[in-house]
């Protein structure tokens, strides 16, 4: 990595740069999805792509998630490397058949003869009084399914590097991001680079408590950690970056060091990623634990519209701080 070429870039433009660089290098990369022509749908993530790579490779589609996602899977089966975007991952539910029944199982069902190098990109659109069908985070569905890899980058650096890895992977990869991250900035190298799938990162070292944060909960976790530092509580923030395959070592190592684990996820609490990580820590670091593992996640309630209800619905840094204070005191 050449440090001279590192500059600050927004999360959404980091995604855009990943597209420019992969599409330039590999003509089999195509970008399919509703609204790739429209900033209203995809922000500036698709900026300049049609001009550069034409509508043959940057394909806006009818509202047919099932068929168009299936078409991406079919194109991948015959050797293309499609990325199919669902600008609201709620609509991705229509495409669960090609994603799960077909793509996830395909390599296995074929006895290893065929593979599906496709990226299913879903965007979480939390809050904004958009209610239950425009706000859902469904990454746990995908992580539950054998044959899918699931990445959830929280920084612009990881967004670019993980999108490049996802496109280059010979397997179906679900790439989930959050609209709230799009304006966040990070140092992003101009060079073509990748972030390995299945490797987490420690964003902040600490000795008192391990805070495992997913996607948008990472900036909230960092905020919480900084505030707690002022009170003398030293929080280690671990970002798995990939939900599946999960970097178990980085979580267990940290859990053994601090003895206290809090998991903050952007999905629903029950049967979700936080539950999975909690079970993992119980299985592999039980004797190191000083307190039960705590989950911070969405309640088992559909996303509400009204802002007063939204405020109660989405956990933020204050909720993390409360949970950590309680854990330390207990």
């Amino acid at each position: 990595m050449c440090s001279e070429k590192i500059r600050k870039l927004s999360y959404s433009l980091a995604i855009n740069e990943a597209f420019h660089q992969t599409m330039e290098r590999d003509t089999s990369v195509i970008f399919i999805g509703q609204g790739v022509k429209s900033p209203w749908y995809v922000g500036d993530t698709a900026l300049g792509l049609i001009d550069r790579f034409t509508e043959e490779r940057v394909i806006d589609t009818p509202v047919s998630e099932n068929a168009m996602t299936g078409a991406a899977v079919g194109a991948a089966i015959v050797g293309m490397r499609p990325v199919v975007v669902h600008p609201r991952c709620d609509f991705m539910m229509y495409a669960l058949d090609p994603i799960i029944n077909e793509a996830a199982n395909w390599h296995y069902m074929s006895g290893g003869h065929s593979s599906v190098p496709v990226v299913f990109w879903g965007v979480i659109n939390r809050s904004g009084e958009q209610a239950a069908q425009h706000s859902q985070a469904i990454h746990a569905f995908f992580a539950h399914t054998p044959g899918l890899k699931v990445v959830m980058p929280a920084t612009a650096y990881d967004a670019k590097g993980l999108l490049i890895s996802a496109i280059q992977d010979d397997n179906p990869v679900v790439f989930i991001d959050d609209r709230w991250l799009y304006r966040t900035e990070d140092y992003v190298p101009e060079e073509f680079y990748s972030v390995p799938i299945g490797k987490g990162v420690v964003h902040r070292k600490g000795k008192d408590v391990t805070l495992v944060a997913i996607s948008y909960m990472v900036p909230e976790a960092m905020k919480a950690a900084e505030e707690l530092q002022l009170k003398g509580i030293d929080v280690e923030v671990v970002d798995p970056r990939t939900i599946k395959p999960l970097d178990e070592d980085i979580i267990i190592e940290s859990a053994k060091k601090t003895g206290r684990v809090i998991v903050a996820d952007v999905g629903w609490q029950s049967f979700g990623v936080a539950a999975q990580i909690s079970a993992l820590v119980s299985e592999k670091a039980f004797s190191s634990l000083k307190a039960p593992v705590k989950r911070i996640a969405l309640p088992d309630i559909p996303a509400p519209a009204s802002r007063t209800l939204e405020k109660a619905y989405y956990p933020m840094s204050a909720d993390i701080i409360t949970a950590i204070n309680k854990m330390i005191v207990d």
């Binding site: 996602t69 078409a71 079919g74 077909e102 069902m109 006895g111 003869h113 065929s114």
Partner: peptide
């Protein structure tokens, strides 16, 4: 499955492979 024969795959989810053939044609 037999990629050499151009048999790209078969699946019992009714209509499940229609869109896959669509994608192959798009490719």
């Amino acid at each position: 499955y037999d990629l050499e024969a151009g048999m790209m795959g078969s699946a019992p989810i009714v209509a499940g492979t229609i869109s896959l053939a669509l994608g192959a044609a798009l490719a």
